[in-house]
Write a protein that binds this DNA or RNA. Structure first.
Lengths: 229, 229
DNA sequence: AACAATATGTAACAATTGTTACACTTATTT
DNA sequence: AAATAAGTGTAACAATTGTTACATATTGTT
């Protein structure tokens, strides 16, 4: 049985009023499956005819090349939908392999039932669309950063973003703490850690900022803006 | 008045049966606005409370930095929705500036009306979700390519993809024509054109393929697969 | 056929980034 | 407080890619 507890923290189900949950699922076809640690949940290229919601546990997704080499790995913790953006895409196949890394429980609802659910519950529909829209925004942003070619440009972009965040709290403040350390930032940018440190030092050399560990003081915003390629 | 002609080629409206269009719009609040060439249609950061559908003309979108420097430019031709993925996102602001580059007509429907339309017409709802899902897929793919760091890796990935496409027609065939020329491909990868040509020559040197202009003959698939970083 | 426009092959050199290694600092654990 | 781990600063060198320039090839136009 599904309780509101299981789903209340799920990005796309949270909108459903707990009282309505039982009723909603009453005449709906769904499946709940448990997977032991290490079990394969879905395979890359497999037809995707159901919405998968991870309600307990954690999974890892791996993108494999035709050769067998791994490309990207992501860990997803419950509760969250899996590949929700792909259910309705024209090429609706799983983009990745999904494997349980803990004892996991997955709620499966057929595409047809999801559509019925949309009709029954506008809030659910809106959450579903919003969730996917947020994914799109995230991807767009990530893409934007990767599109900036030089490390200097990426860093300048990031620093200006952080600065504007701190400005929204106190406009006179030009000191802030980076929300990522250098190691994380390098991974985020897709560059090596020493190259990032080197570039940060260069930006200091030019007098745009002063950096002490993760504490940044911005001296010259214009200079930073001119570094955006 | 909106005719089926205007919208039949629009990705998210094509699902609506022409006969139903009139009825559908009958009790709906919508606005149709014409913009002369050069007119500003929307500004970056502006609150997004309506679905914008470009039904005639063409626009360009520009992403500007706080400084005023341009980052990316995209040209969109009618008919197509504008920023449809952002209407329902949590941070629902226009990600870009939108400017008409031709005499353009835009259909505007409020968010509330869009939701009503979803309820009235399941086909429209599905098309809307599908369209946004396709955008997500496109971004994912683009991201995947940009994540591959070396030009050699990107090229190998692309060539294997093209090969598998031609294999799906004739599995014994290992000759194909690239669907992009080198100039386009370089832009797609975000690298310089001479660097791309140089890398293509290197892959030939290693004996994996033979390239004559856009015609590729694959000699050694395994070698290609080992180039994926 | 001559011409122009576009695409491709290639080379030298500059700029950027990755790799590896190590000293040093700060945080965490024992 | 000592020991350990994690994060940071920096340097030398290798590898990759960008830049610029020009020759050649192909395609389309007149």
């Amino acid at each position: 049985m599904i309780t509101s507890l299981d789903l209340s923290r799920c990005p796309i189900c949270s909108a459903i009023a707990p009282n309505n949950l039982k009723e909603l699922f009453h005449n709906m076809e769904y499946k709940i499956e448990s997977h032991t640690k290490g079990a394969n949940i879905a395979r890359q290229g497999e037809q995707l005819k159901h919405l998968y919601i991870l309600i307990k546990g954690a999974v890892k997704t791996e993108m494999i090349t035709e050769n067998g080499g791994l490309l990207t790995i992501e860990i997803i913790k419950a509760p969250r939908p899996l590949a929700s953006a792909f259910l309705f895409a024209e090429s609706n196949v799983f983009p990745v392999d999904v494997t349980a890394i803990e004892e996991s429980t997955i709620l499966t609802i057929s595409k047809e039932e999801v559509i019925k659910l949309f009709q029954k519950d506008t809030a659910f529909l809106q959450r579903y669309i919003t969730y996917n829209s947020n994914v799109t925004q995230f991807l767009s942003k990530k893409l934007q950063i990767l599109t900036i070619k030089t490390i200097k440009g990426k860093l300048a972009h990031y620093l200006l973003e952080q600065l504007s965040k701190s400005h929204s709290i106190d406009p006179s403040n030009n000191i802030f703490i980076m929300d990522k350390n250098q190691t994380e930032l390098a991974k985020y940018f897709g560059v090596s850690r020493p190259a990032l440190a080197r570039t940060l030092a260069a930006i200091q050399q030019e007098g745009a900022i002063k950096a002490h560990r993760n504490k940044i003081t911005v001296f010259n915003k214009i200079l930073l803006q001119n570094m955006l390629d």
